[in-house]
Amino acid sequence: MNNDEAVIRLTEVEQSRAHFKLGPLNLNVPKGYVTAIVGPNGSGKSSTFRLLLDLAKADRGSMEMFGEPVGRDDVKLKQRVGYLPDDSLSEEDSLRGSERAAFTKIWYPGWDVNRYTELLNLFEVNPDLKLGKMSKGMRRKFELTLALSHDPELLLLDEPSSGLDPLAWKKMIEVLHHYMEQGNRTILMATHIIDEVRRLADYIVFLVNGRALGVYEKDELFSSWHIFYVQDERSVYELLSGIPGIRAKEKAGGGVIKVITNKAMDAEKWLQKEGIKITGRTPMELDEIMASLIDNDRLRMRQS
């Protein structure tokens, strides 16, 4: 990740509330890529977006977008951003979609009515309906349309597929792929949909209990995190502590030991060199990787 090309920079950002602390967060979001923030509910994903948009204030640390400090109420800076929040505003329920769009376009000189109409047709959204009368999926598609219609340089998407049926989800993926084709646009998204991460993300940030547990290049992450099953014989269990990238090991029964590593290629070579028989090997899914990171983080916190 080239930090010089970061569209977003968070440096030692903290926000403390009565029952939750976010941070300290250090994060650089690279220009021209899709970065996905994944983590359990309540881990701080939505709070991070609100801080970036100056909808809430950090207690300490610094934030930048496009090289400019966040927090100066800079309208021109926000005009470069499209935002899809996790929750719709109930205060807007009485507005028709067309009325909401008319209000939105006032704030964006780059509003493209043709793009707006194209997306409405693609998503099969009726803008004459009141927002409160739209289904959750239709309202989601309408709000995504609003976020895209002024041709933003940066998209902040908080659980973008929430409420979408499989066909609408596929259309959304295609729209976001098309959005990224120019090469100079950036997406920061929060999601818990594994297939969404696989289809869209270039980088993955694991955010748990308000803290980032790491930033990973997606393809490298999935190729390096594997589970090995090895034959339990001699003093293999103790020897396995030396396997490259070891994150966990346990006896799985039936004369087999289960080993988790984040350096799969090196681990396989090491096992072969040590003469340890591999009985099985499985690449890990995103939720399994996150669970392993959380377990290791809890252990580290207890030890410290």
Rank of each mutant, 00 (worst) to 15 (best):
S135R: 02
E274M: 11
V7D: 09
A291R: 15
L55D: 04
K218G: 11
F206I: 10
A56M: 12
L51K: 03
L164M: 12
Y83S: 04
M138I: 01
N26D: 15
R50C: 01
M265F: 12
E181G: 06
I37C: 02
R100C: 09
I243L: 11
L286Q: 04
I187S: 06
F228K: 05
G110E: 11
Q231P: 00
R100W: 12
P166Q: 06
D195T: 13
G275D: 08
R185Y: 07
A101C: 10
V75A: 15
E238I: 06
E153F: 05
E285H: 11
L25K: 00
L95A: 07
D74G: 05
L95T: 08
D93Q: 05
D73A: 11
A101I: 10
R302H: 13
D73I: 01
L129P: 02
L286K: 02
Q15N: 12
N3D: 15
I194K: 05
L240A: 03
D74C: 06
D158C: 00
E250H: 09
I194C: 01
Q15F: 03
L156T: 04
V125W: 02
R72C: 01
S16F: 09
G255T: 08
K269I: 11
N262S: 06
N209Y: 09
F20N: 07
N28Q: 13
R247A: 12
P40C: 08
P69H: 07
G245F: 03
K258S: 14
A248N: 15
E64W: 10
V13T: 06
G245T: 03
N262F: 01
T11V: 13
A201Q: 05
G245P: 08
N114T: 14
D128H: 15
L119Q: 07
R139M: 01
G214P: 05
P127M: 10
Q303L: 13
L299G: 11
P166M: 03
R234E: 15
S223P: 04
S223C: 10
W169T: 06
E14S: 14
W169P: 00
R185N: 09
G61H: 11
H178P: 00
N2S: 14
T11Y: 06
L51D: 02
L119W: 07
L200V: 02
V215F: 07
I187L: 07
L84Q: 01
R211A: 06
F222G: 05
P109H: 05
P24Q: 12
F66H: 08
G275C: 02
I294P: 10
G242C: 03
T117D: 15
L22D: 00
Y108G: 04
N126M: 08
Y229A: 01
K31V: 05
G82C: 09
K277N: 11
L293H: 07
D87M: 10
A267C: 04
K269C: 00
G137N: 00
M301W: 09
L154T: 09
A264C: 12
L131I: 07
L51W: 05
I294L: 11
G183F: 07
S224Q: 14
M189I: 08
L293W: 07
S235G: 12
R247S: 12
R298I: 14
N3W: 13
D74M: 03
E217S: 10
S135I: 00
R185H: 14
I8D: 06
L120G: 08
S304D: 11
V175R: 04
D202H: 15
T48W: 04
